[in-house]
Amino acid sequence: MTRDAATRPVEPADVVEQALQLVAATYRSPDAALRADLDSGAFATAVAELAAATGVAAPVFQVTDWPKLQTTYVTLFVTNAAGVPAPPYVGLALDGELLGPSAEALKRFLAHHGVETAAGWHDLADHVAAVAEAGVLLAEAGRDDAACVLLERFLSPWFQRYAPEVVAADDSGFYGPLTEFLGSLLSEVSCETAA
């Protein structure tokens, strides 16, 4: 999240970037930055503005219990005794396996556009949050077309596959509504890039 998102209205051209930013913020491990955005209301403002800009119904969410949010994140996306309902890897949604052909294609695509995984990122490069963040970087660099490819071809399939799982399994009141909202949002946003 950037502070900007909270203070200026979303213009249509920014929708892609803002949506990607929200995806990145939502699916990163819940950290101090997310907490600050939630506490300050910046997160809620960004969500509301995106909803207004796209016509997608705004989600009703509330975070009162921060530790609960952290536990739910682990339960939904990391490790769960009953089975992780929504592994956060776009390649898994596309190929049914980790580091499969789609993950490899993504890697080549990002490399082609000069996006690298940061040294401190100890997870796969096709983690939903990482793909979204890469999209933000590309959009900021003026490569909306490339950001759109990430959004349409890599992120959207993950939402199609896993949004229902998140909604069904969420008990935090945060990930379920947000995932439902972002899933609809991504299917609304039209990039019109050549495939």
Binding site: L94, P101, S102, A105, R108, F109, H112, H113, G114, V115, E116, T117, A118, W121, A130, E133, A134, L137, L138, E140, A141, G142, R143, D145, A146, V149, R153, T193, A194, A195
Partner: peptide, 21 residues
């Protein structure tokens, strides 16, 4: 994530017509 140099690159790499496989 970090963005490197080639911001002017064409959308898909050369000789790589289908970016999704």
């Amino acid at each position: 994530m970090a963005l490197g140099g080639s911001a002017q690159a064409q959308l898909f790499p050369d000789g790589f017509p289908n970016p999704f496989r």
